[in-house]
Computed example of a mutant assay.
Amino acid sequence: MSAEDFAALCARVRRESGDGAHEVSRGALDTIRPGHVLAAAAEVRSGRTVTMAAQVQTEPGPDDPEPCVHVMTGAVRGAMKRSGLGFARDRFTMNVHGDADSHLDALCHVIYDGTLHGGVDADTVTTAGATALSVEVARDGIVGRGVLLDIPLLRGVPWLEPGDHVTPDDLAEAERFHGVQVGEGDLLFVRVGHRRRRAELGAWHTADERAGLHPSALEFLADRRIAVLGGDGNNDTAPSCTEGVAFPVHVLAVHAMGVHLLDYLQFEDLAAACEEEQRWSFLCVIAPLRLPGGTGSPVNPIAVF
């Protein structure tokens, strides 16, 4: 995709997603109205709950050279009293936007041509944190109807190979295959099989090679006016097919459309539950941490059937 074609695509998805119809401060989260939440609650029939988060990684690997550091700081075996009261305690240090741990990207995460979503000046991101569009936008949680589109299941393969793209036609065909339609305010999750490939073949340099959405797929999402996009990879394909832009899906979704992204989720449990329940929509609850000025947060989205 040429730079000119990408600029035109940016303008189209910004217009089609209803930019200007919602508050810049919340982005596409404003498409989730109380009626959408009530309708999503009606998706609960069996009471089954399923996590979409991967286990936090603490060992370095080719896709995670600086993993989370987990240190026990309280009473542990060999260093605790055998009488009276004690407390086991721990401390975490995490690179939120790595290539292994499940996380949410706030609207201040993507800076493009000197601005954030809605034309907000990028200088609002300071050394003390972002003063606009931070993860605090989602402080009350994100609750709505989740929809899983399982592209490997559609294609009859265990996963998409690195470098492969999910196209708009894939998304439309997956809707028909699953008997579900993505609509306004939905929390859309697109499986490419990244986690299964990693589990079976081992980690690799995902910064250089990974499956994801083709930039043109964002027109499908803009037309449906989704609220959130989540993937079991980075959502962006690598290497990028877009001239001069390494992460075109991030630019289109976060910067142009105001859509919060969730990267590196795991959908293996969810995909199995969808097949067993024979439905690919569910109530979804996402509760990011309240990190003042944060550009993102570790996250554990829960699907409720």
Rank of each mutant, 00 (worst) to 15 (best):
G114I: 10
T127F: 09
G183M: 12
F189M: 15
I151C: 07
R176I: 03
D170A: 05
P162H: 00
V166C: 04
L201T: 10
R191N: 11
P158K: 01
V135E: 00
L171R: 02
T206W: 01
F189K: 01
A130K: 00
V147A: 06
A138Y: 13
T126G: 08
T124I: 00
P158I: 01
G118H: 13
R155W: 10
G163N: 06
H165R: 13
E200R: 12
H205R: 11
R195S: 13
G144T: 03
R139G: 09
Q181W: 06
D113A: 13
H117Q: 10
G141Y: 12
T124D: 04
F189E: 02
G163L: 05
V125N: 14
G129F: 10
D123G: 11
F177C: 10
G146L: 06
D123R: 15
L153N: 13
G141P: 04
I151G: 01
G183C: 06
E136M: 12
D164H: 12
G141W: 08
D123S: 15
L171F: 07
V180Y: 07
R145N: 03
H194N: 13
D169L: 14
A203C: 08
T115S: 14
A132D: 10
R176T: 13
H117W: 07
R139C: 12
T124G: 02
Y112K: 09
V157L: 12
G119P: 04
H205P: 04
E161Q: 15
G129D: 06
A174E: 03
T124K: 07
R139D: 12
D170P: 02
H117P: 04
G193P: 08
G114N: 09
A130G: 03
T167M: 05
P162W: 00
T126C: 07
V143M: 13
G179E: 05
L154G: 06
E200A: 11
I151Y: 04
V190H: 02
H178N: 05
E200L: 14
D140I: 01
G144L: 04
T124Y: 02
D164T: 13
E175F: 03
V135A: 09
H194V: 03
A172I: 01
L187G: 01
E136T: 07
P168T: 11
S134K: 06
V135L: 12
R145F: 07
G179L: 07
V190T: 11
G129L: 05
R197E: 05
E136N: 07
D169A: 14
V143W: 10
L187M: 12
G183S: 13
